[in-house]
Amino acid sequence: MVRRVLALPTGRLAVGVLSVIALLAILGPTLAPHNPLGTSALTLTGPSWKHWLGTDYLGRDVFSRLLAGSRTSVLGSVEVALIALAVGVVPGILSVYLGRGFEWFTLRIADTLLALPFLIYAVAVTALLGNGIPQAMFTVGVLVSPLFYRVTRAATLAVARSQYVEAALISGASIGWIARRHVWGKVLPPVAVALAQTIGVGFVVVSSLSFLGIGVQPPAPTWGGLLASDLGYLSYQPWAPIVPALLIMATVWGSNLLADAIRDVSGEAGRALLNSRRARARRLNPAEPIPAGGAAR
């Protein structure tokens, strides 16, 4: 599947954008040319050789703060996605196999979680468990887990009712055998789509929370926090919020693009898409012969 995603231009673009962001998260804090917390007398200056993106209201180097803040932001969104995955997928599969009672119970829990406004809940939970990104992200992760529950359940249901599963049953296969052999491969692509999408959602949430000053102690930099402080000095530096905003947008856009690319290449729709591309290429460039093999029906 990875190869097929990379075969799409949008897939390559998404992976490219996300790799740069991931590199920032890993290396950002060490690459920062200045101390992201170090204040100076030079407040609210424009870009210069010393301060590529200028300084903020306390005279801190904005570029260094962006680099240092990337790790918190990215780790937070990944945490949201992973927690949602862990909490949602297993009950999603089991809801199909463990009988009516379990199904009803998990469905109602999923409905309940969906009904809760997660941003407000995250705020409430940080008040209870302490103001930290992990606590807030844990809450958000649990609250968006119904997405994974639903997606997994839908995919599993489709498989469970298929004839090849019945054929396996007739051969004497156990539920575990069927899950390992037939269900897993079908559930993975939609879960991957949901995962990429949730990373995007998580990013917006981390940025929103840190914009509100929740989850991060004040001097520590985050992209959302930068955006918030820049907005306070809009009249002095109207261009300042552009950079953190662009970074946030690029990451979310990259995640959604990746989700689209995964969806496009998996299953029947993926084959149809590749076919129509081939047909278009053929029309644009009729001189170039195209191998006939693998024609989809």
């Binding site: 004839q163 090849y164 054929a167 051969s171 004497g172 052999r181």
Partner: peptide, 23 residues
């Protein structure tokens, strides 16, 4: 246990659906 012995087997009408498309 009986099914595992394979005494009775079944062939579906539509093999496209009775064979796992990803295997």
């Amino acid at each position: 246990a009986l099914r595992r012995r394979g005494v009775v087997q079944y062939v579906f009408q539509d093999p496209l659906r009775s064979l796992d498309p990803d295997l």
